[in-house]
Design a binder for these strands. Sequence first.
DNA 1: ACTTGGCACTCGCGAGAGAGGAGTGCCAGC
DNA 2: GCTGGCACTCCTCTCTCGCGAGTGCCAAGT
Lengths: 340, 340
Amino acid sequence: MSSEDRRLAVLRAIVEDYVQTREPVGSKTLVERHSLGVSPATIRNDMAALEEEGYIAQPHTSAGRVPTDKGYRLFVDRLSTVKPLSPAEKRAIQTLLDGALDLDDVVDRTVRLLAQLTRQVAVVQYPSLSRSTVRHVELVPVGGGRLLVVLITNTGRVEQRMVEVGAEPSEALLGELRARVNAAAVGRRLAEATRALHGIPQAFCPEDRALVVRVLEAVEDSLDIEREERIVLAGTANLARSNTDFAGSIGPVLEALEEQVVLLKLLTEMAEDSSGVGVLIGRETAHEGLAETAVIASGYGSQGEVVARLGVLGPTRMDYPTAMAAVRAVARYVSRILAS
Amino acid sequence: MSSEDRRLAVLRAIVEDYVQTREPVGSKTLVERHSLGVSPATIRNDMAALEEEGYIAQPHTSAGRVPTDKGYRLFVDRLSTVKPLSPAEKRAIQTLLDGALDLDDVVDRTVRLLAQLTRQVAVVQYPSLSRSTVRHVELVPVGGGRLLVVLITNTGRVEQRMVEVGAEPSEALLGELRARVNAAAVGRRLAEATRALHGIPQAFCPEDRALVVRVLEAVEDSLDIEREERIVLAGTANLARSNTDFAGSIGPVLEALEEQVVLLKLLTEMAEDSSGVGVLIGRETAHEGLAETAVIASGYGSQGEVVARLGVLGPTRMDYPTAMAAVRAVARYVSRILAS
DNA sequence: ACTTGGCACTCGCGAGAGAGGAGTGCCAGC
DNA sequence: GCTGGCACTCCTCTCTCGCGAGTGCCAAGT
């Protein structure tokens, strides 16, 4: 083993020990717990080098070393070995998710499952509207001069909008409008569908046009991608358990979690490695409240296309191999269910 | 002022001081901050009596007194004076809620508003299906032998179910089924509607009956009250702020919040006083994780009928008058919006 | 050139002691 | 029934001090 290799082995050992014990790890305990075949003094030299390079740090002089964000990053990228799920966990995933009824149910069960498997905060993004295509648009008069516009996507999401149309439209008018909207939109991606709707008002006689325009506005509104990105959380109580993992309190983390925009941005912009799992560590999240947290996420979707992401969030000091394995497995399973 | 009256005044002063300072309050500071017109020694006698009756307690000998659950209860029931909202707060409620687009939006804005006003955890229950009536049922074929069943209630809630029907039903069949279902269900409460649907299959010829039954099952499924009770939370980060308010950690509280069943039960079973606001204090919640929290809730709904509840949850040491005022005001405002 | 044992040094942490002070209960007097 | 006085309790804060884990450096060994 070259000295370079050993240095990495030391880093790996430090990360693993620190994650397990939650205490800064020193050279002596390191050689005791891992059979590195060298003396503590040698390890100290390696540690000094690792610290020089910014992979580890000491909380204070004469304390053990703690991995830095950069250290975790190297660990995740090059040092961690995949920890396969236990058969029991695989079974849990299968039995839990197979019983799901509809999309809401799938998402709900998934997020709980992830929280339970990883003992961290779980995050599941609803299938993004931007990647979805229109399956059907329905117009339902509900009386009182109101019309309900229902949009159904191929991913099973259903959006609805109430629209005031003043007068009761005739069934014939409604039927034609329904037919035209569906002809224009079905099978298209949402952004394209919006464009495809533009020509429709001209096909109607002028006195109906105002109503048609109002309805189309509602349809376009539900096609608007940005507004309705949704994410679901579970396992926030796990944050309190790892209370000591955060320098301050968990308050800022909870705040960040409530701002779904922040989470969405993280999930959306995350780069994934070859196995489809992405990791953001500490300050990589570029969010103050999440400076001490890490996010692990993976895309999911039918037919190999990523329609949304799911993952977990926890202290930077988390068990990356296990969490990454769980996220990947769950993402694959959810994808399979959505495909059916 | 009779001695009995003064004792209550002392209790009120203790609660108010303790809520404000977060520290056990002693006889001396009490006479200094409130003009009770008697000496500390007299107050001490009253305190001893109050402690005897279980309204206050000392954390340890030679410390000040702290209200017990029973003390808070008496305070809420008989001693608290309503604190009207500030004009700024009233304006905030109005401007925020008036901009809401649909039911989801109303609920979302409401829960955020409540969390912000009270600086506690806010809880809003979606209009309960059990009190709602059916406004419309729509059947939408979406291809692939699937049918989407959409149920719209008078409270604006929309439930949807996908149902596999195998063959594509003809438009005529669908039209008749739609008409019959709506004729039977519209205007009825959900439980009644379920019963009203029972006779429908007999009206169809035998070869269609299987399909009709499947669709009706889906309709009844979305009419099933228990399954889809939903609540929404906001402001959980406020729990971390009042970290010191909880003996242990906030973990158990977060856990309880995630178990929506628990919250639903609390909201549903809560008794309300004459002004429509209900309070559960500490162990009254009958839930271990919430032993140190209080819940303040109020019903809301259109036309004076309670269709759901909303409220806040925080440490038992909370500002009850202000929180109760906020909950009541928001509940009224939401009711007004739903009525329109 | 790398490794190793030795050694002096640093510094956080926990235990223990002691002063301070807030608050109490009780009692005698008004 | 209220009040001032007084002795007592006991929490809290602070300070000190010793321990020990851990380090960095160095000189010697391989």
